[in-house]
């Protein structure tokens, strides 16, 4: 099972170049797509989900030419957009029933069994009769997953699903995803590094419409081993320093700053080597420090 994206280019009518010669290959399992706001994550995902055209490039999934044969992909696709609404005043059960029909499940009996099952998985059985438009953010996201599961998709695309979820809800959500991701291809976009670390077997970092780095999360961290340095300084000192290689800064309770920087060798005696993490890798690649 593999998704092959080559040389995608997309410029919006307002002149923004959202995809810029983007190449990517994704196999089975959870794939994390990391990138800052405006990086082009949603644009890429919409394109894969057959909801948007590109100016140039090709996408292939399991032998399906996605840009050409959209219907074939939709058969095996599950997509959860970054934000979505639902018909007002329609219950979860009813709405899922509608989606099941849209996804080609014709038998009413089968639909009912399936919907029971799916609701159970996302833990919405109790509120199945309630209108989805009245759900909390987390419940609505889980409803989104339920809708994805209806057609047993091989390619699942979820766009920043954890934004706005409380930790418990996020956990529950990721568990569901992990389960489905085992056998299929799941593309998961986020700007929360934590999500990727916990979940993904493979990842890519995207900025300004191009892939800056694709690797396993563990490899990304391993690459930085010995190159991350930390120190504590005052705000004044921080303001006057050269910030190009700064990975992160955090305030200590005494109002001093804990600063981490990226360097091949120890920058000065004030710094001590620190254990690299995925967040460091993210910043290194976003800022193209290596």
């Amino acid at each position: 099972m593999s998704l092959k994206i080559s040389n995608l280019n997309k410029t919006y009518s307002n002149g923004v170049k959202a995809l810029n010669g983007l190449n990517l290959e994704i196999g089975t399992g959870m794939f994390g797509l990391l990138g800052p706001n405006g990086a082009g994550k949603s644009s890429l995902m919409r394109t894969i989900a057959t909801l948007q055209d590109v100016d140039e490039g090709s996408i292939e999934f399991n032998g399906i030419d996605v840009l050409d044969n959209q219907m074939a992909l939709r058969e095996v696709l599950g997509y959860l957009p970054q934000s979505f609404g639902v018909y007002p005043k329609v219950s979860a059960e009813n709405l899922l029933n509608y989606f099941a029909v849209l996804k080609g499940i014709t038998s009413k009996k089968e639909r009912n069994i399936l919907i029971d099952e799916v609701l159970e998985i996302v833990n919405l059985t109790d509120v199945r009769k309630k209108a989805v438009s009245g759900y909390s953010g987390g419940m609505k996201q889980r409803f989104g997953i339920a809708q994805i599961l209806l057609n047993n998709p091989q390619l699942i695309i979820v766009d920043e699903p954890t934004a706005g979820l409380d930790p418990a809800e996020r956990n529950r959500f990721l568990n569901v995803l992990r389960e489905v991701g085992a056998k299929n291809t799941v593309i998961f976009s986020t700007h929360i590094v934590e999500d990727v670390k916990e979940l993904c077997t493979d990842m890519a970092i995207l900025n300004k419409g191009t892939i800056l780095k694709q690797c396993k999360p563990t490899d990304a961290v391993a690459e930085l081993e010995g190159k991350v340095w930390a120190t504590t300084m005052t705000t004044d000192m921080f303001n006057s320093m050269d910030k190009e290689y700064v990975l992160s800064k955090n305030y200590n309770p005494d109002n001093t700053l804990k600063v981490r920087i990226y360097a091949d060798s120890k920058p000065s005696e004030h710094y001590s080597q620190d254990v690299a993490n995925l967040e460091d890798a993210y910043f290194v690649h976003i800022n193209q420090l290596s």
């Binding site: 499940i105 089968e110 069994i113 159970e120 009245g134 909390s136 419940m139 599961l149 047993n152 389960e179």
Partner: peptide
Amino acid sequence: KSVKISKKEANNNKKKVKTVSMQIVKG
């Protein structure tokens, strides 16, 4: 019409997650 999370659901957090088992036969 916001839906309140029921107690039961809150307690259900640790329930084991399954995947869809059903196979759809198309006519």
